[in-house]
Amino acid sequence: MRSFTYERAASPAEAARAVATTQGAKFIAGGTNLIDLMKLEIETPTHLVDVQDLGLDRVEETEEGGLRIGTFVSNTALSAHPRVREDYAVLTRAIQAGASGQLRNKASTGGNLLQRTRCAYFYDTNMPCNKRKPGDGCAAIDGFSRQLGVIGTSDSCIATYPGDMAVAMRALDAVVETVKPDGTARAIPVADFHRLWGDTPHIETALEPGEMITHVRLPTPLGGQHFYHKVRDRRSYAYALVSVAAVIQSDGTGRVAFGGVAPKPWRSEAADAQLPNGAAAVVRTAFADARPTEQNAFKIPLAERTLAGILAEMRS
């Protein structure tokens, strides 16, 4: 871990300004991913701006009946919030499917959106990786790729967004609120938050330099039945092979987002429209452009079977 200086910001705009004006600066919230990566020198910030004192640790009701989640709200607190459990159960389910109790207690809402990939070659600094070092090459494409992406990937990088929370947020059409260094705010639909990186896999989100996540806004509740099925090799404390977030209405329509398959939570409105036609139709549409490796091609039938299980549960 390289040396860094550390400060606690007093306001979101000040935090954004500090990161924008200090070369090599980064925000730190929970730190569960950032500190891990700093130890391996995959992240090498020279200055950390801690956002824990900004009052962004509350979940508030919005006027239209949704929720506004502060960026520093812990995964545990968010998943346990009565309104989330009642009206956005898919989000509670997704969060509780991720990591461990200890990590969920520390990991923040904003930080979890920014969680970086678990690709083994990204994590090993002796290995080529276009995400760590643009132009370096990708060791994963012809290597150990079982866990990696099958769609939305590129010739430069087949990593996935590894988290669970954002998959549910995608199904809910959450909106990420930010503040820029100049103090202006903007709202980014979570659908547009993670990039399909093409040949710039080191740029993973729509955030501009210094732009800070302040809140995540959940629209009014969708109703329907909420499911999050995460399939993994062991039963807990593991990354998804495939996860499926689904909100399904009694008439069979609904929304489906897939995790563990792409650089972002994977959902298409065209695939949603196929829900009344069954899992095969949804997956055929959602994964029409998939380019899996030999090792991870199973993820597509697995996605179909996982969704089919949800639909069967829905019917019973």
Binding site: T125, P128, G137, C138
Partner: peptide, 17 residues
């Protein structure tokens, strides 16, 4: 940290000699 140009890499992936 390893430092070598021995390995040929392409944008597509790794060409292992």
């Amino acid at each position: 940290m390893a430092e070598d140009g021995f390995m040929k890499v392409s944008r597509r992936g790794v060409l292992a000699g």
